[in-house]
Simulated assay, not measured.
Amino acid sequence: MKLKYILFLAFFCFYNYSYSSEFRRLKKEAMVNQGIKGADIIFYGELIKIDTINKISTFRILELFKGNYNSKIINAKSDETDYPIYPLKKDLWIVYALFNKDKKTITLDLRSPTQTMEIGTGFLPPVPIHGIYGKKITKLDSIICEVENLKIRNETLSAFFYQLELLRAYKSSQNIISEKEKTELKIESYSKYIIISLIVNILLFSFLIFIILKKKIFIK
């Protein structure tokens, strides 16, 4: 009986881990790359307001990695997805989102790599254990569960900063591409200017030769 109880407790402690297994099969790099491809906007920000009645979450954008958005404040209203995220705690977030039909608010989707510093990608918030089948949780049981939760929190925090590193590298690469495109446009414009100048000079030179030849013919 004791063995069954311990096994059930272990299963309960690993519930969040099991829940997110579908998302964690992907390598971190692949997960982020997939998120970049599928998102309209990606940012690192702070959740500053939670409206539980209207289910609206307000974020302050601290660092924008993808998307055109002029304001530092953005609202999330996740009604346009089958797997919505409704934030329950103010925290620092990495958000991958799609714009809603209004083109102003965004949708937070559980299938994206969106995460906080405390809750990892695809995780539900930790559930406190008070008792199982009316039995009292022993101190040892609580310690075992807390150790497993600490492992998950440590991995979540590690993944958070890893994502930031990858997203900053992505942003830098896009800036380099943008500068390269600008340089190519300048070179292309300069090349066109040179070609036009050559054509004009050839025409002027041809016209000058024509005038000289015409004068010679007239003198004769």
Rank of each mutant, 00 (worst) to 15 (best):
K4V: 08
K4N: 11
Y5W: 12
Y5V: 05
L7H: 08
L7V: 15
L7E: 13
F8H: 11
F8T: 08
L9W: 06
A10G: 13
A10I: 13
N16P: 02
S18F: 15
Y19Q: 11
E22I: 04
F23T: 11
L26A: 02
K28H: 15
A30Q: 14
Q34K: 09
Q34P: 05
G35K: 07
I36C: 01
G38W: 09
I41N: 10
I41C: 04
I42D: 11
F43L: 13
L47D: 02
K49D: 15
T52D: 13
S57R: 05
S57G: 13
F59E: 07
F59Q: 04
R60F: 06
I61V: 14
I61R: 00
L62H: 01
E63L: 05
K66P: 10
K66C: 14
Y69R: 12
N70W: 03
S71W: 10
S71H: 15
K72F: 01
I74P: 05
N75P: 04
N75C: 05
K77P: 06
S78C: 12
E80C: 13
Y83R: 14
Y83V: 15
P84K: 12
Y86A: 12
K89P: 00
L92E: 11
W93P: 10
W93L: 02
W93Q: 01
I94K: 07
A97G: 05
N100I: 01
N100H: 05
K103W: 03
T107K: 10
D109Y: 03
L110Q: 15
P113E: 11
Q115E: 07
M117R: 06
E118I: 08
P126N: 10
V127T: 11
V127S: 00
I129F: 13
G131M: 00
G131Y: 01
G134V: 00
K136T: 10
I137P: 00
D141T: 09
D141G: 14
E146I: 01
E148A: 13
E148L: 08
E148C: 12
N149E: 15
K151H: 14
I152F: 08
S158Y: 14
S158V: 02
F160D: 10
E165F: 08
L166S: 04
L166T: 05
R168F: 05
A169M: 03
Y170F: 13
K171H: 14
K171Q: 08
S173T: 15
N175P: 02
E181R: 12
K182L: 05
L185F: 12
I187R: 04
I187Q: 01
S191P: 02
I194Q: 00
I196Q: 06
I196R: 06
S197L: 07
L198P: 03
I199C: 00
I202C: 02
I202W: 07
L203Q: 01
L204T: 05
S206I: 10
F207C: 11
L208K: 11
I209N: 06
I212F: 09
L213A: 05
L213H: 10
K214L: 08
K214T: 01
K215G: 06
K215C: 06
K216W: 04
K216N: 00
I219N: 08
